[in-house]
C-alpha cells in the first residue's frame, strides 16, 4: 500500500480539527499514515497522537514555524517527511505550502480535492462551476478541501517522535497587523452571513454584523457590493474573483446570485437566502429561502437565533 504523509493543519499554534479530516482523506489514498506537526513547542503534537488511522506522529519542531515562510517551511517539512503521498489542507496557506513541497520533490500537486475514489481525485474547476476528475500515478501532493471529508475519530494512539527541523528563512515579517474587528475572515469561518447590493447601503451591513456576532460568523459580501461601496473591502468578497468558501452555513442577504458569486459559495453545506425577489437565482441553491426584504427578515432572524443560542 501507498505511504501517506499528512501535514497537520494548525490553528493558533495548535492542531486544528481539520487535521482529522485530512487523516480521513489520507486513509482513502493509502495506509501507513505519518502525521507531521509543524510546531515551536512539541507538546502540541501529543494530542494528535490519538487520531485513529495515524501510524506515527512526527513533531517537526523549529522556531521558524512561528511565522509562515513558504520556502523555509517547505524545506523543513520536506526534510522530516518520508516519501509517499503528501496530504495537506486546502486552506490558502496550506495550498501554497503544498505547491512548494510538490515542486521540491519534483512531483505534482492536486489542489482542493473534494472526493477520492482509488487513484481518481475530484477537484472543482471554474470555482465549482464544473468538476474535474484526475488520475494520479505515483507520489503526489494532495490538498484536501476542509468540511468535505469525514474526520477520523480520536480513539487511537501512536508514537510521537520529535525532530528538530530547520530551513533557511527567505522572508522577514516586519509587522503583524491584527484585524481591527475580532470577527473571523470568511476564509476561516464555519458560518458566513453575506450581504449584496440589496442591502441598500454599506451602513446596513451593521445589521449583518449583529447576527454574525450571535453566531460567531464571518461577514461576507458579493462582488456587486464590494464594487459599489468603497467601505466594503475586497477581503470580504465571496465568489470566483474573491474567496471560494464552503462553510457549514452560508446566509445570503440581498444577494441575487450572480454566476460568479454562486461559484464561490455553492458548495456550502447549508444555504439560507433572504431576497425580496422570489425569482432571484440564489433561491435555486438555497436549502431555505425567505422571500422578504432584509429589513423585515433580519430582526426576526436575529431574535430567533439569540433566543435559541442564549
Amino acid at each position: 500500500m501507498t505511504e501517506t504523509v499528512i501535514i497537520a493543519e494548525m490553528h493558533k499554534g495548535k492542531v486544528s480539527p481539520t487535521t482529522n479530516e485530512l487523516v480521513g482523506a489520507a486513509n482513502l489514498l493509502g495506509s501507513n499514515c505519518t502525521l507531521i506537526v509543524p510546531c515551536t513547542d512539541s507538546s502540541v503534537a501529543d494530542e494528535a497522537s490519538n487520531i485513529s488511522g495515524v501510524t506515527k506522529v512526527i513533531a517537526a519542531k523549529s522556531s521558524l514555524f512561528t511565522n509562515y515562510d513558504a520556502a523555509a517551511w517547505a524545506q523543513a517539512l520536506d526534510s522530516v517527511a518520508p516519501q509517499g503521498i503528501v496530504v495537506t489542507s486546502a486552506s490558502a496557506q496550506s495550498k501554497d505550502l503544498a505547491a512548494r513541497i510538490a515542486a521540491r520533490r519534483d512531483i505534482s500537486v492536486v489542489q482542493d480535492v473534494i472526493s477520492i475514489d482509488g487513484n481518481t481525485l475530484s477537484t472543482p474547476i471554474y470555482s465549482g462551476k464544473a468538476i474535474e476528475n484526475v488520475s494520479i500515478n505515483g507520489d503526489v501532493v494532495v490538498s484536501i478541501r476542509p468540511n468535505v471529508f469525514a474526520g477520523a475519530d480520536n480513539d487511537g494512539s501512536c508514537e510521537v517522535q520529535v525532530i528538530d527541523a530547520s530551513g533557511d528563512l527567505s522572508t522577514a515579517v516586519k509587522e503583524l497587523v491584527e484585524r481591527a474587528s475580532t470577527r473571523l475572515d470568511v476564509s476561516e469561518a464555519n458560518i458566513i452571513i453575506s450581504g449584496g447590493r440589496g442591502m441598500g447601503s454599506p451602513d446596513n451591513f451593521s445589521h449583518l454584523e449583529v447576527i454574525a456576532d450571535t453566531l460567531g460568523a464571518a461577514v461576507g459580501a458579493s462582488r456587486a457590493a464590494v464594487d459599489t461601496w468603497a467601505e466594503i473591502p475586497h477581503s470580504m468578497q465571496v465568489g470566483q474573483t474573491g474567496k471560494t468558501v464552503n462553510p457549514n452555513l452560508y446566509i445570503a442577504v440581498g444577494i441575487s446570485g450572480a454566476i460568479q458569486h454562486l461559484a464561490g459559495m455553492r458548495s456550502s453545506k447549508y444555504i439560507v437566502a433572504i431576497n425580496k425577489d422570489a425569482d432571484a437565482p440564489i433561491f435555486q441553491y438555497a436549502d431555505y429561502g425567505i422571500v422578504s426584504t432584509w429589513e423585515e427578515a433580519l430582526p426576526v432572524l436575529g431574535n430567533a437565533l439569540s433566543n435559541m443560542l442564549s
Binding site: A92, A102, V109
Partner: peptide, 12 residues
Amino acid sequence: TGSGSTGPGVAE
C-alpha cells in the same frame, strides 16, 4: 483551475 500552485511551485 483555481489551484494557486504556479507561483510557489515555480519559486521552489
